[in-house]
Design a protein around this nucleic acid. Structure first.
Lengths: 210, 210
DNA sequence: CCAGAGTCTTGACGAGTGTCAAGACTCTGG
DNA sequence: CCAGAGTCTTGACACTCGTCAAGACTCTGG
C-alpha cells in the first residue's frame, strides 16, 4: 500500500469535511433567516440570499427543505442546551446561583431573542406538523434536563428538597420565559426586570417550606 | 313620518343583521380550518371549502385576509375567556375549587385542543408579525385576568395570601398547560393525568406558607 | 496543461396563494 | 310580473414557492 501524507488526507475524506462545512454554513444562514421571518415565511431563496450561495445549491447539499430544517434544528440544539452549565458549576451558594441564573436568562433573552422565538415557533408548529414532532420532543426533553440541572443544584445548595417534578419545573420556568420574550419583543421596557424578579421569586417556591 | 312595523325593520337594518351572521359563519369556518392547519397553512380557499360558500365570497364580507383573521381572533376571544367563571362561582372550599379547576383544564384540553393550539400558534406568530400583536396582547391580558380570578378566589377560600403577581401566576399555569397540550397532541397517554396532578400540586405553591 | 469530477448558477416547471373583476343568480319592492 | 339592488360564483391575474435539469465554472490528479 502506498502511504498517504498525513497533512493531505485522501480526496474523499477532505471532500466530506468541506461538504460538512457547507452544510453548517447553510444551516447558519437558515437559522438567521428563520429567526427573522419564522418557520412559515422562510423560503429557500431567502435562506440562500442570506448566504454566499444561490438558491439552487440547497438541493445540492440537502435532499429537500425538510432535511435542511431538521438539520438546522439539531444544529441549534447542540449549540444551546448547555447555556447554564457554567452558572451551575460556578455558583457556591443558593442565592448566588439564583442571581446568576436569572441574570443569564435576561442576557440570553436580549442577545438571542430571534433564536428563542424560533424555538417557540418550531414547537408550536409541531402541534400541527407531525414531521417536526420527533425533533421537537427531543429538544424539549434536553431543555427540561437543562433546567433540572439548574433547579436541582439550587435545591442542593439550599439544603431543601424540591416539591415539583422536572417536567413541571421546566414548564413553569418556560412559561415565564416565553411570556417575557413576547413582552420584550413587543417593546415593553420592564419585561426584563420582571423576568429577573419573577425567576428570583419563583425558584424558592419550588423548594419545600422550611 | 310613516310608522314602520316593528316585526319588519327597514331594509338596511335587516341586511346589516344577515351580513353580521354571514361574517360569523365565515369566522366559524375559518376557526375550524385554522385549528386544523394552523395559521400559516390556512388559505382562503380552504376556509371557503369548510363553509357553504365559494372562495370569492370572503372578499365580499372582508376587505382582505388580515381583516378576516383579526375578526376571527376577536370572535374566538369572546367565546373562551369566561371558561372557568362557573368553577369560581360554584366552589365553596379551596380544595373543591382546586379539583374543579384542574378537571376543567383537562376537559378543555381534550375537547378543544385545536382551538388551544391555534391560540399558541397565533401568539407565537405575533412574535414575528407585528400586525397580530395588538390583538394577541389584548387576549393575553384577558387570559391573565381569567387565571387571576381563579387563583385569587382560591387564595381567598384558603385564607392565605398569594405570593406571586398575576402575570407570573398566569405564565406558570400557561406553561404547564402548553406543555401538556403538546404531549397530549403527541399521543402521550399520561399527559392528562399529569396535567391534573401538576395543577393540583402547583396552585398551593402560590400561597404563602402557613 | 488538460480531461474530468466536483461544485455552483441559472432558468424553467407546476402547484398554490391573495386578490379582483365580470357576470350569473336570487330576492323583493313596486 | 319585472327591474334592479344585493349576493354569490367563476375564472383569471400576478406572484411566490419547492424542485430540478442543463449547463457553466473550478479545481486537481496525472
Amino acid at each position: 500500500m502506498t502511504p498517504t501524507r498525513q497533512d493531505a488526507p485522501p480526496r474523499a475524506a477532505r471532500d466530506e469535511r468541506t461538504r460538512e462545512a457547507r452544510r453548517d454554513a447553510l444551516a447558519e444562514s437558515a437559522l438567521t433567516t428563520l429567526g427573522e421571518l419564522g418557520y412559515a415565511r422562510t423560503s429557500l431563496r431567502e435562506i440562500a440570499a442570506n448566504s454566499e450561495f444561490s438558491h439552487g445549491v440547497v438541493h445540492y447539499y440537502f435532499r429537500d427543505k425538510t432535511e435542511l430544517i431538521t438539520y438546522c434544528v439539531r444544529y441549534y440544539k447542540a449549540r444551546c442546551v448547555h447555556r447554564y452549565d457554567g452558572v451551575v458549576a460556578e455558583s457556591r451558594t443558593a442565592p448566588e446561583l439564583l442571581i446568576a441564573f436569572s441574570d443569564k436568562l435576561v442576557e440570553t433573552i436580549v442577545d438571542e431573542a430571534p433564536m428563542h422565538r424560533l424555538w417557540y415557533d418550531l414547537r408550536t408548529t409541531s402541534m400541527f406538523e407531525e414531521a417536526l414532532r420527533p425533533d421537537v420532543v427531543a429538544i424539549d426533553a434536553s431543555l427540561q434536563d437543562m433546567v433540572w440541572r439548574v433547579v436541582s443544584r439550587y435545591a442542593e445548595l439550599a439544603g431543601r428538597p424540591l416539591v415539583v417534578t422536572p417536567g413541571v419545573a421546566y414548564a413553569m420556568l418556560d412559561g415565564v420565559f416565553e411570556r417575557c420574550l413576547l413582552r420584550h419583543l413587543a417593546g415593553e421596557r420592564d419585561a426584563l426586570d420582571e423576568l429577573r424578579a419573577a425567576v428570583r421569586g419563583a425558584l424558592p417556591l419550588l423548594l419545600r417550606a422550611d
